[in-house]
Computed example of a mutant assay.
Amino acid sequence: MRFSVIFLLASAKSGIAPTELVTGGIAWTLGTLFAYLINGAMDVVEDRLNGSGRPIGRGALEPGTALRAAWLCAAGAVLVSLGSLPIVILVLAYLFCGYAYSAAPFHMKRRSHGTIVVVLMLGGLTYAAGWIGSGSHENGLMAAVFATAMTLWMGLVGAVVKDLSDVRGDAAAGRRTSVVAWGERRARMVCVATPLLVGGGFLLAARLLAPQLTIPAVLLLAGAVAVATFSATTRSDEHRGRSRLPYQAFMVTQYAAHLALLAIVLL
């Protein structure tokens, strides 16, 4: 969705290049599947301890099968993007980040700062690919404000709140996530403050620089209030349906902001 929304925003006036949209979207989807499958295969122990419902963690997909599928996705992502050198370079960078997040020798997921850096890079690369892949350079400031806000939302909010429900498995696996390293109380304070700062900053930037983004910004700020509220009122030792509320609010907000921008572009 991130790739497609920025692609459509960048080509809103000059006309959409359907081949580039489809091939770029497929390449980015395959790259994302690669990162997801690699992560799932490497996180089996943590996922099972945390009671995750992901296919590999719950035993529906064998880690070896997932790894083979991951590399097929990586190969497919590169092959589909061969028509554009800049997109190939971005795809390769994206695949590297996805691998480095989970696998040896990098294991960036083991430290909170490593997680944040990789997630920021994944977000930035996705929006850059959508912009470059469109072949147009329309609505540049609007795209920059939105992409910056949503990349920060991913890296500074999502990368931290996702750990709130996974303390047991992360600690057992030796990961120094934000909650393990900082303690749950301090991590939750960060998870209350950061969404509000990102949401408030986005709304301010939208009003000053790109008023067309006011609706997505308002939605993001509303979601930020929800993430902050759930972060303050849940605990990691509660049942998973409740302990995952901060992350679920983060995800719903992310989709809402992108769908709002998509509606603005298309209508």
Rank of each mutant, 00 (worst) to 15 (best):
F3S: 00
S4W: 04
I6V: 12
F7D: 01
A10P: 11
S11R: 01
G15Y: 01
G15E: 10
A17M: 15
P18D: 03
E20Y: 11
E20R: 13
V22S: 12
V22W: 04
G24S: 11
I26Q: 06
W28H: 12
G31K: 02
F34L: 07
F34D: 04
F34T: 03
A35F: 02
A35K: 00
I38Y: 00
I38F: 01
G40Q: 08
A41Q: 10
A41W: 00
D43V: 01
V44L: 10
D47W: 02
L49T: 01
N50K: 04
G51Y: 07
G53Y: 06
P55T: 06
P55S: 04
P55N: 06
I56Y: 02
R58G: 13
G59T: 03
G59C: 02
A69Q: 07
A69Y: 06
A69P: 14
W71H: 10
L72V: 13
C73K: 00
V78G: 03
V78M: 08
L82P: 13
L85M: 13
L85S: 15
P86D: 11
V88G: 07
V88H: 05
L92W: 06
L92M: 15
A93N: 08
Y94W: 14
C97E: 07
G98K: 01
Y99D: 07
Y99G: 06
A100C: 08
S102N: 09
A104W: 13
A104I: 13
P105H: 03
H107P: 12
H107D: 14
M108F: 07
M108N: 04
M108Y: 00
K109V: 07
R110A: 11
S112C: 15
S112H: 15
H113M: 15
G114V: 03
V117K: 12
V119C: 08
V119I: 13
L120D: 04
M121A: 15
T126W: 02
Y127R: 05
A128P: 08
A128W: 01
G130T: 00
S134T: 04
G135N: 07
G135H: 10
E138Q: 12
N139L: 06
M142K: 08
A143E: 10
A144Y: 00
V145I: 07
V145A: 09
M150P: 11
M150S: 09
W153D: 06
G155M: 05
G155C: 12
L156Y: 11
V157W: 00
D163G: 03
D166Y: 01
A171R: 13
A173V: 10
G174I: 03
T177W: 03
V179M: 04
R188M: 07
P195F: 01
P195H: 04
V198P: 06
G199E: 02
G199S: 08
L203V: 10
L204W: 08
A206Y: 01
R207M: 14
P211S: 09
Q212K: 12
T214C: 11
T214N: 12
I215Q: 14
P216V: 00
A217I: 04
A217F: 03
L220H: 13
A222N: 10
G223K: 02
G223C: 08
A228Q: 06
T229A: 13
T229W: 14
S231K: 03
T233H: 06
T233D: 14
S236G: 13
S236Y: 10
D237W: 09
P246E: 04
Y247E: 13
A249S: 09
Y255S: 14
A257E: 02
H258V: 03
A260H: 11
A260G: 09
L261S: 05
L262S: 05
A263V: 09
L267S: 15
